[in-house]
Design a protein around this nucleic acid. Structure first.
Lengths: 230, 230
DNA sequence: GATAGATATTGTAATTTTTACGCTAAGGTG
DNA sequence: CACCTTAGCGTAAAAATTACAATATCTATC
């Protein structure tokens, strides 16, 4: 490499993950408590440096697994942050990614520099390490946009869910109230929810029907020009 | 810095700019012809390495100015690309940004490693250096989304424009045909276009009224909950 | 100065989508 | 069996979208 280029090859790069989960009532994200400097003892997004020979997508899944135990997730890239002083150890740029999971599908196994990993209500997040609050905000905004134009909400729910649960999820993500009847009408008209034939068990009120997301049918509709929109 | 971290601080970072322009008929982008290896002689997006002590936003404007002469633009960040082998000289991650300009407002002054700078019709873009075709595609997609939900189209037009020009711009960006009457109705109903009182000059047909975008009025409407949507 | 050519401008009816809103059903509990 | 809780459903009004064609105004040309 030519000499005058050397000084540019002195940066580091990291990725940070915003893992959204839903527990039936609130939108949550997965945070770790750092057990190392810098920001020892602070809560932070799971994230770490990208190895020199590692692609971003591999990096995201590796890092998340090392820190929390969660693996094989599909991430969406959101925004890259490059303020000169955002990292105390040197120039580190970072890219924020988000993903959606069903909380009950995963067991948390913090390790590496994560002293602890925990699901935190999005509205209860306090000051995080680095510029992670900014990254989180950016991911929340992106999620709010995406959830209106793609049926990603289903990735947060168990395979069988009630329409009330689905509506609650949208309300939690968008932070708004939706009309029960209009919501049901709209979703059912889209024709990609299948009744499972089952109903809720052990509830002390009229049990709700359980539905499932029919991905095949959704893809068929999409290929015919159908556009999801809530 | 601790030893085990050293190996991470060996990457470089660059930014690449997609500058969209409109000449009244076609959507164009600004490309440079590289006069240096790697990819000597290839057409490429204007872009270069970020200095170790430089913020991303400063970098974008500096680089674009050095290569093409255009300065002081507002950019939107789109996507970061990090394939391990995307740059022949080492590990270089890059972030793509786009901006919109009125072509006639700027004179092109290629310098630094740009042997040439030219406006190219978006549909005529051939093979570019590095992964720049991918970056371009990503920016086009983002532009097509953004243009429907924010009145950014006006940034591509001269201060005074006709409704036909505005419609042509939307058709060029979105690659679709719009109904004349419905388009005019929709845009005029939004109430942030002001008649200038002037009409086209030197046209060999009925001259069209010239309008201007009333930003103050738009901001007022927006603050009242109005949502732009085409 | 009459005519042809080019683009600008405008309205309405039909359809679709969105919104607002309250009552009955089905199960469990005490 | 009375009560509590959530599920499930329909309709009318309003708003937005779509489809569609005739006239107006200017220049150029004969």
């Amino acid at each position: 490499m030519q000499d005058h280029l050397q000084k540019y090859f002195t940066l580091a790069f990291s990725i940070d993950c915003v893992v959204f989960g839903f527990d039936g009532a609130d939108l949550k994200i997965l945070l770790i408590e750092r057990g190392e400097d810098p920001f020892d003892g602070f809560w932070a997004l799971p994230g770490d440096l990208v190895a020199p020979d590692e692609d971003l997508n591999s990096s995201v899944n590796r890092v998340l697994k090392e820190l929390t135990g969660l693996s094989d997730l599909f991430f969406e890239q959101v925004e890259t942050f490059g303020a000169v002083d955002r990292h105390p150890l040197g120039r580190v740029l970072t890219t924020g990614y988000y993903t959606l999971v069903k909380i009950s599908d995963y067991e948390l196994n913090p390790s590496s520099f994560a002293a602890e990993a925990r699901w935190i209500n999005v509205n209860d997040v306090k000051e995080l390490a680095f510029d992670h609050n900014q990254i989180l905000d950016s991911c929340i905004q992106r999620l709010q946009k995406s959830v209106r134009t793609r049926p990603i909400g289903f990735e947060l729910l168990p395979p069988h869910f009630t329409l009330t649960e689905l509506q609650g999820l949208y309300e939690a993500i968008l932070n708004i109230e939706l009309d029960i009847r209009n919501f049901r009408k709209k979703i059912l008209q889209m024709n990609f929810l299948k009744e499972t034939g089952q109903v809720q068990q052990n509830v002390s009120h009229r049990p709700a029907k359980l539905y499932q997301f029919d991905e095949e049918q959704y893809n068929l509709l999409k290929s015919k020009g159908f556009n999801f929109e809530v």
